[in-house]
């Protein structure tokens, strides 16, 4: 049983790896690099949460 599971595992891994790479290139080509890397640290803390001492 485990041998079959291991073989299925290889197939699933290969499929998911391919999907990730596909989705990755898809994403990279449909968005600007500035948009993708626009996350900033501490932004949400500064904007949404009021900072009181």
């Amino acid at each position: 049983m485990w041998i079959i599971i291991a073989n299925i595992g290889w197939a699933v891994s290969a499929a998911l790896a391919a999907w990730m790479v596909y989705d990755w290139f898809q994403t990279d080509s449909s968005y600007a690099e500035e948009t993708l890397t626009s996350s900033r640290e501490g932004e949400i803390e500064a904007v949404q949460e009021k900072h009181k001492v």
């Binding site: 291991a6 595992g9 699933v12 891994s13």
Partner: peptide, 19 residues
């Protein structure tokens, strides 16, 4: 259950969880 299968399990754990 040889090396190929052993590595299959390792690959499954790492790749499926990464996905």
């Amino acid at each position: 259950f040889g090396d190929w299968h052993y590595r299959g399990v390792i690959a499954t754990v790492i790749v499926v969880l990464a996905a």
